[in-house]
Simulated assay, not measured.
Amino acid sequence: MIRDGQRVLLIHDGKEYYVRAGNGTLSTDKGIIDLNVLMDATPGETIETHLGIPFYIRIPRPTDFFSHARRTGAPMLPKDIGMVCALTGMNRNDDVLDAGTGSGIASIFFGGIAKSVRTFEIREEFAKVCRKNIEEAGLENVEVVAGDMLDAEGSFDVVHLDLQITEAHIHHAHALLRPGGYLATYTPFLEQTFIVMDTAEPLFTDVVCHELIGRELTRTKRGTRPSTRVSHSGYITVARKE
């Protein structure tokens, strides 16, 4: 059952409405929905407006939080977050340190996979937004720290950095990682990528950089072909500690 205050998606005719179950109403061009009624419903059912128009109920997944959660900046794309998870082998036994939280979208994805996530955001106002997004995602294994990753203590299986990376960040990540653990960095520019690679080479094994490019298929009556728009988003560098 849907609980009071839980985030829910209401869908009709291709439109999605990101709402909170409980007191209040949703006004649309198809009529008004009493959001209290959601707490007597289950995902997959429909709920009607006062005009009798049905809206489909869906519980948000991480991809939906990417689309609808409050943002403090441009988050990593789901395809890039997926690369981090795949290349590090992130799994339910892992303790993960995430730095450069932003809106918390990457942490939401990581929290659904790993045993625990501690995410650092140096800007307090951003950390507040992240905490709210994490709470609305229903993740109890993600801790948001308003502070500098360079002050982090403990040991981790994966360290992920999405911030203005310096040599100090790479050295500290190495110190925090358990043997066999992975460092993964997201950098939008080559200059930052070179800092990561040059600093990581003497410290880690298997330092590999991946350029992140995605291209969709375009279908028309004439036929199907790759889109001419190439979507470059950035670079992920992955390094393993011996």
Rank of each mutant, 00 (worst) to 15 (best):
A106E: 10
F110T: 08
R70A: 15
C209H: 00
Q6R: 03
I57D: 07
I108R: 06
I11S: 14
G102L: 05
P60L: 11
F204W: 05
V144Y: 08
L139M: 10
F156Q: 00
H210R: 03
K79F: 02
S27P: 00
A175C: 07
E216D: 15
D206A: 13
G14H: 01
R178T: 09
A173S: 15
D64F: 11
D34A: 06
T49K: 05
A41T: 06
I213L: 10
V238H: 08
E201K: 15
G112W: 06
G111C: 10
I33D: 06
E201Q: 12
K241D: 08
A175I: 01
F189P: 04
G104P: 09
A173Y: 04
S227M: 10
M197P: 06
H172S: 10
G147W: 13
F55L: 12
C209S: 12
V37G: 02
K132F: 02
L139F: 10
G22R: 08
L161R: 07
I105G: 09
L217F: 11
L190P: 02
L26I: 12
D4V: 03
I32L: 13
P78Q: 11
F66S: 07
E45T: 04
D29L: 11
R58P: 02
G89L: 04
I105S: 06
R131K: 15
T42S: 06
A114E: 06
I236Y: 12
D40P: 01
P226C: 07
D64P: 14
T72G: 15
A69H: 02
D198W: 00
T205S: 09
D64W: 12
P54C: 12
E216L: 08
R7P: 00
I81R: 06
P54L: 12
E121H: 01
V159E: 03
E143H: 00
L176G: 07
P43M: 03
E167K: 15
E201M: 12
S116A: 15
F66L: 13
S231G: 04
D162E: 02
Y235I: 03
V208H: 11
A168F: 04
N141C: 07
A184K: 01
I81S: 10
G180P: 08
H169D: 13
G14K: 07
R92G: 07
T88C: 11
F66H: 15
L190K: 00
I213F: 02
Y17M: 04
G89K: 03
F126S: 13
S231A: 14
Q192Y: 08
I108V: 14
G181I: 07
F65P: 10
E125T: 05
V238T: 14
E140Y: 00
G147A: 09
S27L: 09
R178P: 05
K30H: 14
I108P: 11
L77R: 13
P188F: 09
E48S: 12
F66N: 14
